[in-house]
């Protein structure tokens, strides 16, 4: 950030340069806090994640040892649904301003457009990481109570879910980071295309279409390749705790693929934001 500040002309009077990034952050935080239903969306994301996780945990049974289920992943199935709400939140933070014309005011107040995008990204990601932590922890806690009743017992090779277990902790932390990256992806796409409906269509399309197409691909090699490049399937590899060598991509590498998608989206968004008229 210091790079951005030093590049500025010293004689700026608009105030953007002086307060710099911190001011932009405060502005974005105020907007997110007061306008729109950001709070409701966060609540909805948590509720959906936990609800779907509970539903899945209740539905799946493990009748005997070696049923091959990934209890940790089951517990956090809700992330696949909750991410849609996270994407909506992220998209609205940008597109909402374009919809109302607020973006022009924002950019007048903070002429450094990358600072605006950076501030938005920081605020939204922080909020999403916080909600994601709540959602993931609640999902794990709920599953810890539900799963043993469905046959996920010590006798069948399932210890109670616990964050003290390395892979479980990695899956939990990874899932929270996953949601944060989804927010970044939504933000980047929304900055690039501006219109809210289009942006959310593109984000959800990117997330959900790859696995749908994967259903009909009947060449194992193609299927693995698809799972390696798809933002959702690769990113959610971070939730896996069983049969890791058999997975097309490792947990952190998978999250790295999603991070690459997010970075690309933010770069394109940032570039267009700088180049284009608001």
């Amino acid at each position: 950030m210091s790079l951005l500040n030093s590049a500025r002309t010293a004689g700026r009077t608009d105030g953007a340069g002086r307060g710099g990034f911190v001011m932009a952050l405060r502005a974005e935080w105020t907007k997110l806090r007061t306008a729109g239903g950001a709070g409701w969306l966060c609540l909805l994301a948590v509720a959906l994640t936990v609800g779907v996780g509970c539903g899945t945990a209740r539905a799946v049974r493990c009748p005997d040892a070696g049923c091959g289920q990934d209890a940790v992943r089951l517990a956090m199935t809700g992330v696949t649904v909750g991410q849609a709400v996270v994407a909506v939140l992220a998209v609205l933070v940008v597109s909402g301003e374009y919809g109302t014309g607020m973006i022009r005011t924002t950019l007048t107040a903070v002429p450094n457009r990358l600072a605006v995008l950076g501030a938005k990204a920081t605020v939204v990601t922080t909020v999403v990481l916080a909600s994601g932590t709540v959602a993931v922890l609640a999902s794990l806690l709920a599953a810890r109570h539900i799963l043993p009743g469905n046959g996920f017992t010590e006798a069948h090779g399932y210890a109670p879910l616990s964050l003290a277990d390395g892979p479980t902790l990695r899956a939990a932390v990874g899932s929270v980071l996953y949601l944060g990256l989804i927010a970044g992806l939504g933000l980047g796409v929304a900055t690039a295309v501006r219109e809210a409906g289009t942006a959310i269509g593109i984000v959800l399309g990117l997330l959900y279409l790859f696995p749908v197409v994967g259903q009909v691909v009947n060449d194992p090699e193609w299927q693995d390749q698809l799972q390696r490049i798809a933002p959702m399937t690769a990113g959610l590899a971070v939730q896996a705790t069983v049969d890791l060598p058999g997975m097309p991509i490792g947990p952190w590498e998978g999250l790295g693929v999603l991070a690459a998608w997010t970075t690309a989206a933010l770069l394109v968004g940032g570039l267009l934001l700088r180049r284009r008229d608001a």
């Binding site: 994407a87 609205l92 909402g96």
Partner: peptide, 8 residues
């Protein structure tokens, strides 16, 4: 009335 929420 909001396109993002409706599309999602």
């Amino acid at each position: 009335r909001r396109s993002a929420t409706a599309v999602a």
